[in-house]
Design a protein around this nucleic acid. Sequence first.
DNA 1: TAATGCTTTCAGAAATTTCTGAACATTCAA
DNA 2: TTGAATGTTCAGAAATTTCTGAAAGCATTA
Lengths: 183, 183
Amino acid sequence: MRMTPMIESFVCHFGEMGSRWGFNRTVGQIYALLVINQQPLCANDIGELLGISRGNVSMGLKELHSWQLVQTTHRPGDRKDYYQSRGSIWDMANRVFEERRKREIDPTLSLLRDILLDEAGNAEEAYAQERIAEIHDLLENITDWAQSLQSLSPEKLNTLMKLGSGVGKVLEFKDKLMTKKAD
Amino acid sequence: MRMTPMIESFVCHFGEMGSRWGFNRTVGQIYALLVINQQPLCANDIGELLGISRGNVSMGLKELHSWQLVQTTHRPGDRKDYYQSRGSIWDMANRVFEERRKREIDPTLSLLRDILLDEAGNAEEAYAQERIAEIHDLLENITDWAQSLQSLSPEKLNTLMKLGSGVGKVLEFKDKLMTKKAD
DNA sequence: TAATGCTTTCAGAAATTTCTGAACATTCAA
DNA sequence: TTGAATGTTCAGAAATTTCTGAAAGCATTA
């Protein structure tokens, strides 16, 4: 593969974007490269295309592996490992959400829970606990919800997203039905 | 205010969490302090409580200000600025989403769009464009959807979240109705 | 107009993160 | 058993981010 300007700008940008999403620049660039390249690439190719050291490539691939975003393939009569992106773009987004939840939200939730179990020592701490409870509940709601959305089929998720704020109407409708039933 | 162990652990952790969410440790800690403290604090208090320099406090508050997460108040006969967190926890979450979208997603969408406007120079670029289009569409869908959810009232959003994956059932139901209507 | 009390700015220091490359590990073929 | 090809690790170098503190700015009051 050659680095055309189009491909280079994508890979570069994805590197920067990556660092916002919880992995570093190199990891983002390696992944970008593998996503837009139909043929699997070996570690050497990757290092040369991105101009980074072998060690760095190895560490980056290790990271992507732990995120289950790449898979390794082999060619007959060739001992090199070849790497490919794994799953659909949807899978990728899910993985990123999941990983971030595990690394960033869960520990926070657990700390907040611990704090809420403590007895407030004074009025200030009592107030603090109220606010912390709000944050805890919000985080918990959002993550629970995100998880239940992930269990929805992609088609249903798509319907839901297409609905946009129109989902409000559907909810009203459902409310009406529930009320009738209760009569 | 005093830094009790409970409050200290919250503030510390929020600092680390903050750095994952697009603002640095200090900004996270200052915000945590203001959220759990009912009384407004002045810059000096903040610096002392967190053990950071005057300049750092000022920069942190400036950042929080630009995110519209704090407001400044004054006391009669006191020239110092006092700071308070602003809005509900929900507002805070919205602000964070919004800011992150503006800073992280929008530039990427715009780059991807530009790339998609270019003519593919060869088969490799054509394949790359296909994958880039997938990413673009996914990002666009998600952000559009997130935006339309933000326009929903908090109560409706809450209903929706409580529904969890049960939203699937409601969608099926709506589908049936739409089909009947079309008959 | 000078002094005071407070905030802001920013150059460079300190801390943190990322990257390199040499050393080591592993596998296979000769 | 040796050596060639490849992958992995990790100490320290390089790059990046964050923080400090001194200087400057800005009102206000004496």
